[in-house]
Design a protein around this nucleic acid. Structure first.
Lengths: 196, 196
DNA sequence: AGGGCTATTCAACCACGTTGAATTCATCTA
DNA sequence: TAGATGAATTCAACGTGGTTGAATAGCCCT
């Protein structure tokens, strides 16, 4: 007769891996919101309830699929060497991780899945580009004012992101005065200093 | 008799404002994902379809509710004055906007609504705090290594966010070499320079 | 051979975003 | 003043998605 429909499927249970692969692909290509458990299950040729059984929730699936996606071990190798040029090596390696065709898409999936609605991203884009960087550039009496403005904006964005969204220590517990003392010189350098 | 259920409601049509108020409150308090059109409609004592009629979609409601939430005009006043201390004034004002009880929550709603799933934020938190800043701090032969590491990380985060997520110009079109030249000195200052 | 454990499926629930038609009020016009 | 126009508002429904609970089938241990 026909093989039965329900019940345990014979053979080695590689199903979990298949689900994870499908999930990674969908999260990377379509983002969090557009990824559906039903779609992942269909891609893995499996019932949606099985995805729930393995990973508990859509959020758990995302976590399981992309927690290992952050390739940081690569950054450790950069720490060796003379400290005087560490800034350059670290910045370059960090950028490489984002640019690499292998690690870049996964990182963007994690950070960008963060962007649930297009409106939020657009609002921030308008804010950073139009309201923050543009008037700042106009007020700068230096060369490359647009470059300087956006670099300063990026510095401020990172500070706020780490402090208010991620809330990582010790930056989340610093006082405003401390932050100004620490960060202002970098912003100042972008605005009027030597860019190299 | 009773007043009829359907049809136009009598009196001044302040309903749109009521919906917007309810939407702002919900987005700020609960974020984008946890905010439902049905819930906003219930809070405004209105049919969900009316929200759709006015704002087209949940995304449109978010846009209408929080597009005006970015108080940038305040930043313009800071541009006047001597340029030599602009970095300090700008950094301070930027922080004040995030800290203020009036503007802070709305800004966090926009940027944080961006965080659709808790897993993404947690993954990033673990990455920035545990994998990036912590080993970096251990390798620093300077004072306040944790402070230095997290400040450098914040700088890198902001750069990546502006470049890869927001994709604002001109930082999105810079080459990696350009970015290293521009950003590395700031990272270096955080790591080994004088923090003030 | 039988008793659990796990993988797997099925069917269903419920909430959500969204749609289309229907109804009522206000206002403008003939 | 009566009728038409258009906007505000509701109702009922559809489709989809996350999630659940029970049921079944294969595997392992004794």
């Amino acid at each position: 007769m026909e093989s039965s429909k329900t019940g345990r499927r014979p053979g080695t249970p590689q199903t979990k891996e298949a689900i994870l692969d499908a999930a990674v692909a969908s999260f990377v290509q379509s983002g969090y919101a557009a990824t559906t458990i039903r779609g992942v299950a269909r891609a893995a040729d499996v019932d949606p309830a099985l995805v729930m059984h393995f990973f508990g929730s859509k959020d758990g699936l995302f976590d399981a699929a992309l927690r290992e996606a952050m390739p940081v071990r690569e950054l450790s190798t950069v720490l060796a060497g003379d400290v005087s040029s560490l800034g350059a090596r670290l910045t370059r390696r960090y950028l490489e991780v984002w640019e690499s065709p292998e690690t870049g898409p996964r990182i963007r999936a994690v950070v960008g899945s963060i962007a649930s609605t297009p409106a939020a991203a657009q609002i921030m884009r308008d804010f950073v580009g139009g309201e923050l960087a543009a008037p700042l550039a106009k007020s700068l009496p230096c060369d490359q004012p647009e470059h300087r403005a956006i670099l300063a904006a990026a510095q401020l964005i990172g500070m706020a992101f780490a402090r208010y969204l991620l809330a990582v220590e010790p930056i989340a517990s610093m006082t405003v005065d401390e932050l100004v003392i620490f960060v202002a010189p970098s912003v100042q350098r972008y605005l009027t200093g030597d860019l190299g």
